[in-house]
């Protein structure tokens, strides 16, 4: 199932502003591994992962209908 990934902040310097579609991403660990292969600069970038607007920790199963977002350190205010 393809998964749509959106990024924000400094990660737009690496992945751009448009959602990136990743094939065969059954879980977040696999997704990140594939993203790291496609975007080597992502490997050392700090971020947390949100699935459907909820921050997740640890490997999380993806169904294909999920909105996955990579969120670098927040800098509001």
């Amino acid at each position: 199932m393809p998964v749509q990934v959106i990024v924000f902040g400094q990660l737009t310097d690496i992945l751009g502003h448009q959602p990136v579609t990743m094939e065969d991403a059954p879980d977040t660990n696999t997704l990140i591994r594939r993203l790291n292969q496609r975007y080597p600069a992502l490997v050392n970038a700090p971020y947390i992962i949100a699935v459907d607007k909820k921050i997740v920790t640890g490997n999380t199963t993806l169904t294909g209908g999920n909105a996955v977002a990579l969120l670098p350190p927040f800098a509001g205010g």
Partner: peptide, 20 residues
């Protein structure tokens, strides 16, 4: 806690990402 980001744009048009 809010997912907000700030791009600090310098007078010479270069930029860096704000850190809180």
């Amino acid at each position: 806690e809010l997912p907000i980001w700030g791009k600090e744009i310098f007078e010479n048009e270069s930029y860096q990402w704000k850190e809180n």
